[in-house]
């Protein structure tokens, strides 16, 4: 698999997100970096869409349920041609439509607004349910956080999606192992996470969430499982803050904004990894 395109896209998502959070003085860079490779693979190679016709009926849908990583979605959409890259400069500025938690209002390519955890996944499930009822061939993708798995509505949805055999519904858990105050392990344990989902009736695929070739294989398997009557979850093992050494695996970077020397150092590290 040639993953050049997705690796380029992931680099640009991280680079934009660093600038966007720096400019906006906003947080969640760690949660954006952990899912950057996932959204890059989805938009570079997996999803069917037309940036010139964002509401194309046959498009694949993506719902970012962990809405706090909104900058990552805006960046991937701008890079994919949905709106000018220059608009990213308005992120979190006064009067902007690009809010820190992802918003769909006036933003081409964003399906729904999220930010309150545990709500995007059931919305995406409703979209998948409607797709099934309509006999449509597209897939509904959804990205949720690991901390988000504390929300009861995630598991309500897991039960319902299984009951209704939503095999057009592909959820990815960005399993970066750190939530708001401390680690997932020290907050509300999730492991064995793939087994939990499997026991809910889902086809669970566990993958290194930064290995593009592995992500490509995982989504190929997910799409090939259509027709088997099972919703699909991709448990992506990721590193919070992936891409900048001093942000990686550090809860501080859930909230911290890279400024001054930290910003310069982060830029340098990312640019050194440019594909």
């Amino acid at each position: 698999m040639n993953d050049e395109k997705s690796r380029q896209l992931a680099y640009r998502v991280r680079r934009h997100a660093l600038d966007m959070t720096n400019r906006g003085g906003t947080s969640h860079i760690g949660a954006i970096f952990s899912m950057a490779d996932i959204v890059a693979v989805l938009y570079a190679d997996v999803m069917h869409y037309d940036p010139k016709n964002p509401k194309l009926p046959g498009r694949d849908r993506l719902v970012l349920s962990k809405g706090h990583a909104g900058a990552g979605i805006y960046a991937v959409l701008a890079e994919s041609g949905f709106f000018p890259v220059s608009e990213l400069e308005t992120h979190c500025q006064n009067g902007s439509r690009l809010s820190g938690h992802v918003s769909h209002k006036g933003v081409p390519g964003v399906e729904v607004s999220t930010g309150s955890l545990g709500q995007g996944m059931p919305m995406a499930m409703g979209m998948a349910m409607a797709g099934k009822m309509n006999g449509q061939p597209h897939t509904v993708f959804c990205i949720i956080g690991d901390g988000e798995c504390d929300e009861g509505a995630v598991w309500e949805s897991a039960l319902i999606a299984n009951q209704f055999k939503l095999d057009n519904f592909v959820v990815t858990v960005d399993f970066n192992k750190i939530q708001s105050i401390t680690t997932v392990e020290d907050t509300i344990k999730l492991e064995p996470l793939d087994q939990k989902w499997a026991s809910f009736g889902w086809r669970a695929i566990r993958v290194d969430g930064h290995d593009h070739a592995a992500l490509h294989r995982a989504y190929a398997e997910a799409l090939a499982a259509r027709g088997q009557g099972q919703p699909i979850v991709v448990i992506a093992d990721t590193v919070k803050g992936k891409g900048v050494s001093f942000m990686e695996n550090d809860v501080l970077w859930h909230y911290r904004t890279a400024r001054g020397e930290e910003y310069d150092a982060a830029v340098k590290e990312l640019e050194a990894q440019k594909p």
Binding site: E111, P122, M125, G126, M127, M129, I160
Partner: peptide, 15 residues
Amino acid sequence: SEQAMMSMAAGMALE
């Protein structure tokens, strides 16, 4: 499961 049900309803309505 009222919470999931209400969000799901919104998702279906958007379709």
